[in-house]
Amino acid sequence: MLRDITLGQYYPGESLIHKLDPRIKILATFIFIIELFLITEFIQYLWILLFLGMVIIISGVPLKFMLKGLQPLMIIIILTFGINIFMTKGEVLWTLGPLNITREGLHQALFMGSRLILLIIGSSVLTLTTKPIKLTDGIEKLLNPFKKIGLPAHELAMMMTIALRFIPTLLEETDKIMKAQMARGADFESGNLLKRAKSLIPLLVPLFISAFRRADELAMAMEARCYRGGENRTRMHELEFHYKDIIAFLVVLCLLGIIVWQRLR
């Protein structure tokens, strides 16, 4: 059912990783991604695996949940793998009809595939161990310095909060409208692309109308609850750095150091 897709896919827990400051986790995830792109040799993935393995074990989130994040992106992974394995020129190992699999291609495919998989798992750690509200708070705080150049940090974070709140509601509604239209003989599944796109109109029109009505009512309700933007607003859970955050950040920087050093050598 559609309502099972709770966004943010947060896995509740009390681990050290869960308790780290969201700002540290967001920055660490960025650095982790940079590290992945700096790697040039297979053997270096060992460092990443060691680090990621450690983080996953500490977080207490079952590996099953980590791997779940791969499912929706499977097509991209397979595509990356396929393109690399067949398109790279070099020493031919096997021939499949018009396609050649080369030693270099195999190496490249495994290399890129691993990078992508590690990237997805690495970023799932962030969303699995961070409450949505903490995530948006963290983003707001990190973007705060850019307010000076006109970036609406608070508004962006508020938009994300509301999106996280309403996506399940709107999915549920889509489901309901779809069933209602199907009961009246609407067909969303057959026909060519154009016909299918056309059949979405009776779904999208009521959905948009309802979304605008919701937005209107929500704005009214927020105003009634004294919302007036980010000025003078406090938070129930103020973010603050602790020693563990600094240590965690140092670990990530160390890893970056090792990889950069190996690359420069």
């Binding site: 943010g8 409450k131 949505p132 509200i133 709140r165 509601t169 309700a221």
Partner: peptide
């Protein structure tokens, strides 16, 4: 407090 309970809750928790 308004009529539609869905359209007055702001946060996902």
């Amino acid at each position: 407090v308004f009529q539609n309970p869905d359209n007055q809750l702001v946060s996902a928790i």
